[in-house]
Amino acid sequence: MNIFRLAGDLSHLAAIIILLLKIWKTRSCAGISGKSQILFALVFTTRYLDLLTSFISLYNTFMKVVYIGCAYATVYLIYMKFKATYDGNHDTFRVEFLVVPVGGLAFLVNHDFSPLEILWTFSIYLESVAILPQLFLISKTGEAETITTHYLFCLGVYRALYLFNWIWRFYFEGFFDMIAIVAGVVQTILYCDFFYLYVTKVLKGKKLSLPA
């Protein structure tokens, strides 16, 4: 555990909680892609199956359980409790275009051809693109609520911090995981355009709206 890793995990946790609280407090999931949230629930489910097979640390187990629990709670709020506020007309990204190729790639490029390892690899690849339906929704509506942009910012910072974590681990532990690193770089790049808008608009007190 290093400072980048811990800060990354906490940033990830902050993102998840910001989104849950936003939906809960406003009693609305307008502007939120339910499809991205389903993908994240799928990511956590397939990645953390090792909860059942190996114990790493209390911290590790606790965070995994919280991430999974929050992911399903978010999906529940969007598709059940506050379904009436769900922006289904704009949330039209075709997720099969992500899930199918990512599933195929996980079968082809993995560390070990075993069920748990393939599912872990699938979750890593899927996470790297799971935000696309959300970014697609924002590009369709042309705007995002400020709280939604804070959520996205924390989520992007989490992955960027993990890149520093991997640099740290490479230098000080000789550890590197090519699958995680390549997927992590892809994931971080997807946020770059958003980071730019966040810094130039949201941090200056403006609402994030895209030019028509």
Binding site: R5, N60, M63, A180
Partner: peptide, 10 residues
């Protein structure tokens, strides 16, 4: 067998 070291990350 698999090197489980990458599984200590979230």
């Amino acid at each position: 067998s698999t090197d489980p070291s990458h599984h200590d990350e979230l």
